[in-house]
Design a protein around this nucleic acid. Structure first.
Lengths: 138, 138
DNA sequence: AGAACCAATGCAACGGAAGTGCATTTATTG
DNA sequence: CAATAAATGCACTTCCGTTGCATTGGTTCT
């Protein structure tokens, strides 16, 4: 419990009750979350608060944003070694078309791509879609 | 002109005036288009018509949809050899953060990725972001 | 402790984009 | 020309992200 407080403080985020709860919630499950997911988990709290909490978390390197192609932004806790504050941590994401969950495959980095002359890449997003391990039954 | 009609007919899409115009418009510029772009180019036409035209085009393998991470869906004409009807043509896309345009890099296919056990990939989306050749001045 | 201050939260509302139902027009076929 | 089907236009809804402003709650300073 105190650990979460410290984690937040280390990232210069004041550990309010709400923030601790949200952090805890995200830490328990290993998947990514849409704002709506968090909303459904914390019906007492206001959408705006949750929205701004995620935003604050993101700005301070606690979570990173994921565009998995579903049209709704997902968020995931950054791993310990995640350096998405300084530069993009270009791991890839997997979206399961069965359970609709998106996971970070932090071990799998996006391979380097040779672009045509004149193109300068600064960021990359790779999302694989299919069936996740839970749903494939393996 | 007649060529476009034939192209549409070959794809089982009835070549109405509107559709020919939209096809022509997309064929002239080599970039990708959001619904809003088309809307601005055809102020006389209704949004729904344009929306459904693009949808029809997509269902019949005339255009393919692109999720470039901007939050708005883009469309691009399929190339001659594009087989996105049968299976995904997994070329990558480049989004320029300067001019805000997204282009298809049809020559650049998404490299194969080894996934952890249990994950079955059926589709992939790779978007690189940065500065395009036009904007980098090269 | 009380006052002053700032950050966090809640409420209301806006705006963009995707999508749908239904009426109307246009084209196609018999 | 009539009957039918497809295409277009209009109105409206929903979803998500976002912002402005009032209110609450916690910190700090005297």
């Amino acid at each position: 419990m105190k650990e979460i407080e410290k984690t937040l403080e280390n990232k210069n985020v004041r550990p309010t009750a709400m923030r601790i709860l949200i952090y805890k919630y995200m830490a328990e499950k290993k998947i990514t979350f849409a704002l709506t997911d968090i909303e459904n988990a914390f019906i007492k709290a206001d959408r705006t608060t949750l929205y701004r909490t995620l935003k604050t978390f993101e700005e301070n390197g606690i979570v990173h944003q994921i565009d998995d192609g579903t049209g709704t932004t997902k968020y995931a806790l950054c791993e310990l070694g995640c350096n998405c504050e300084i530069e993009q941590d270009l791991h890839l994401h997997f979206h399961c078309s069965n359970c609709n969950e998106t996971v970070c495959l932090t071990e799998h980095k996006i391979p380097h791509i040779n672009l045509p002359d004149g193109y300068i890449a600064e960021d990359a997003n790779l999302v694989l879609k299919g069936i996740c391990e839970k749903c494939s039954g393996q």
